[in-house]
Design a protein around this nucleic acid. Structure first.
Lengths: 186, 186
DNA sequence: CAGCTAGAAGCAACGGATTCGCATTAAGGT
DNA sequence: ACCTTAATGCGAATCCGTTGCTTCTAGCTG
């Protein structure tokens, strides 16, 4: 949960971290992402700026940290009765959320302050978990299912690539087409 | 070639732009990307910081600008006699270049300081051009070829996704596997 | 070819972000 | 309950980023 290994997770550190995260969320909503500064966050969180610089090192790393938390899915994928329906629904929702202006901003922030790629790795893990849940349900139904990696390569990767490298949104039909390709002769 | 429309392409502006770009390349190599600052670049380029801020607005946009130029492929894809061989070779080289630490850094920088996504769009266009060249050659040979979009979705997107979101490099065999999937029953 | 115009770069000063050393506090273990 | 040490608070010094104004030069016009 913390960007740098927290050797002492107890009370105060956790409180500070939560206060800072909350302050970032509030301020981004109030003054806009580009206007947020470290001293501003520190004041709102009741903390000194040096604390933030020491723990996160950088405004970008802090924003990256917060962005990853907002990219974490809150609910399990819906169960619509079949693998195809579940994947279609999940891919459409994923595309919608990620392609929205705020979604794009969070993705960019998450990648931005992330020298070692660990935050990006967490985003990828979230998607993999959701897909695993869908696939495991399908296995329980006795349906033939593709590999998780295959779904990531065929559905998640193209969606993210287009969002990042090809401004100009894609529709829900594109998501369904990708799902069809992923399930084809699985 | 310039981030903001250059209404006066003549002598001085062009010289300044080239000097600044060269300074960035040198400094990134010398002190590392994270240690580069605008005043540093300005001093090296023999320019005042305000000039850089006015033309690029931001260190990130400047780095993005330089990164895109370094991501531009210098040579056309090799002609090895068959679509499969050409695509294999291209995908392997692409993966190699992009997955290297400096490649990752350039990709991140290109995406980073890019509010409107135009730099990212250029990167995508570079890859599309290279793929088009390979596919057109194959058409000339009478080979059946997949759609460019299909190759992007099946080969380029997974590679970029893994590089960006899954630290922990992929080998050349992964690139070949993706190409095989893209050509399968094309 | 000379003068005009406007865009681009130089200059300087201000405000704020970032860093650093040192004192203080509070976890976690003994 | 005490001790060790990580983590935070505090304040000063530094450097970056920003802005208004001036100067210069490229490109146009007559």
């Amino acid at each position: 949960m913390s960007p740098k290994p927290m050797t002492r997770p107890g009370g105060r550190s956790a409180r500070v971290q939560e206060a800072v995260h909350a302050a970032v969320r509030e301020l981004v909503g109030e003054v806009g992402r580009d206007a947020v500064t470290v001293p501003m966050v520190a004041a709102r969180a009741g903390v000194t700026p040096s604390t933030i610089y020491r723990r996160w090192g950088d405004l970008q790393e802090l924003l990256s940290d917060v962005a990853v938390e907002r990219l974490r899915p809150e609910t399990d994928p819906a169960d619509l009765g079949s693998l195809r329906a579940d994947l279609d629904a999940w891919a459409e929702q994923f595309l919608d959320e990620m392609a929205s202006p705020s979604g794009r901003a969070y993705i960019r922030d998450a990648l931005l302050g992330d020298p070692d790629g660990s935050n990006a790795g967490r985003c990828s893990a979230y998607a993999a978990e959701q897909i695993d849940a869908v696939l495991n349900r399908a296995v329980g139904r006795g349906e033939p299912v593709p590999d998780t990696e295959r779904v990531i390569d065929r559905v998640v990767a193209p969606i993210m690539y287009r969002i990042l490298f090809r401004p100009g949104g894609q529709g829900a039909d594109y998501a369904r087409e990708l799902v069809a390709n992923a399930l084809h002769r699985s």
